[in-house]
Write a protein that binds this DNA or RNA. Structure first.
Lengths: 252, 252
DNA sequence: CTAAAGCTTGACGCTGCGTCAAGGTCAAGT
DNA sequence: ACTTGACCTTGACGCAGCGTCAAGCTTTAG
């Protein structure tokens, strides 16, 4: 008829702290509070608690449970909505797992296959002439010393980053993503952020014309087959150019 | 060469608040703090931030990211561990979904099929005689008036609870769960908690012999075929009895 | 009568920032 | 020179759901 907080807790497998919490938020108030402040619960409390715990085990949040108990929501309704939530979460995790595994795989073998020439394609060795011609004589020197000065681990990290970016580009260009879609524009943002992180680009210099730089670069991806090869051929490079120019015009 | 916090934020698609947070926890400290307190970042910061964001998108926690950046963990290692985590979570959600859907289904049709006779089997109508004979003359009267006094919605809720408990019992008894296993004992706990929530049971009365009550009841599940039918036949009832007696002996 | 349980309220901690609040700083326009 | 307005700063609360001390009162068993 009249149970103490501990009795209720051990009977239902929860803790007294939880019961006090439920009391605080009004989810399950004690049926009686003695003059010494002790909480006491009766059968109705236990029945209610049973329902609370049942719903909680199914993953419902306390506010949702409260709504059900207040008859503001039917149990079926609440559970159906909850299932949608759960499914969405599960799918999100699925996509995450896919991404992570792709990243791991790209890291283990892509490191040799793509990274070297991909990154090389950008700031040194074989493109020395272009770099000097387009971005000034000292651009190559700066980029090169920067690259040489990096620790091997840092190099690897950058390669991984570029590899990830690149594979995302290819994935996007071979799917039906529009150049001005949010997804594509986010890729452009990442790409530009990466460019900005490379010393020698105009991004960070006081009056640096990052917009012109990106526009020129985007065009080069298409006209230079060596770059185009990195983005899945001419079609891919064209896609990259369109996305980048859209981004540059709108956000730079 | 020297970017403001906002420039970095918009370049990488995060917010200045995030960057300040990363500074606070030491994940990404500004390369320079001017005399006016303004934070400034350089290329190295951007490179580091790129990696942080890449790993964050894959779902890694900030401490894990910090470990990778400090070279305490290799990226591959961290990602591999993370994938395990993700898989476990995904499976947990899968089990949750299953449970919730089972509950919904049981609620929609089980409500008519099982609940009525299941709950009726316990405290009134057809078992009037037994109840009076075993637990005293007034037990039946109390239980019956209590049950009749409940609102329809409350009745339904209790039925659902009992239905869930019952299906778990059957699931456990038809699998290879040992009577003294944690899983089975938790079922017993729920069962006893439910019993205690029914008025007229000795659980809450000052000197109530809950242990004896449960032991007698457990035996009845086996000897009375009407109860046994609720738990999947004699085999199920035997399992229920064993679990309950184990629980009563140990915890009551 | 004392020690051991059991009870109370109060408050921090955890994850990763979002979101005010209150107030300096700086470049541009009047 | 003065006012906007944009951008910057350091706090500090909020969220979900309790776990986990802490300090102190009450009841019970020995």
């Amino acid at each position: 008829m009249d149970l103490s907080i501990q009795q209720v807790a051990s009977l239902t497998g929860t803790t007294s702290r939880t019961l006090r919490h439920y009391g605080d938020i009004g989810l399950l108030v004690p049926s009686r509070i003695a003059s010494n402040g002790y909480r006491h619960y009766d059968q109705a409390s236990l029945v209610r608690l049973q329902r609370i715990l049942l719903l909680r085990e199914l993953g419902l949040g306390l506010p949702a449970i409260a709504a059900v108990l207040k008859h503001e929501t039917s149990p079926t309704e609440a559970l159906a909505a909850h299932v949608l939530w759960l499914r969405a979460e599960q799918q999100r995790l699925g996509r995450l797992i896919e991404s992570v595994e792709k990243t791991i795989a790209a890291q283990e073998k892509g490191e040799e296959i793509m990274a070297e020439n991909m990154f090389d394609g950008f700031d040194h060795t074989q493109y020395k002439d272009e770099v000097e011609q387009r971005w000034g004589k000292d651009a190559y020197a700066r980029g090169d010393t920067w690259w040489r000065g990096m620790l091997p681990l840092e190099k690897q990290e950058l390669k991984e980053l570029v590899a990830a970016l690149n594979s995302d580009w290819i994935a996007a260009s071979t799917s039906t993503v529009a150049p001005d879609s949010t997804q594509a524009q986010e890729l452009a943002q990442r790409h530009v952020a990466w460019l900005a992180s490379v010393p020698g680009t105009p991004a960070s210099k006081p009056g640096g014309d990052m917009k012109g730089y990106v526009l020129g670069l985007a065009q080069m991806y298409v006209s230079d087959e060596r770059f185009a090869a990195n983005y899945g051929g001419l079609a891919g490079a064209t896609f990259v150019r369109d996305v980048l120019t859209t981004y540059a015009e709108r956000d730079l």
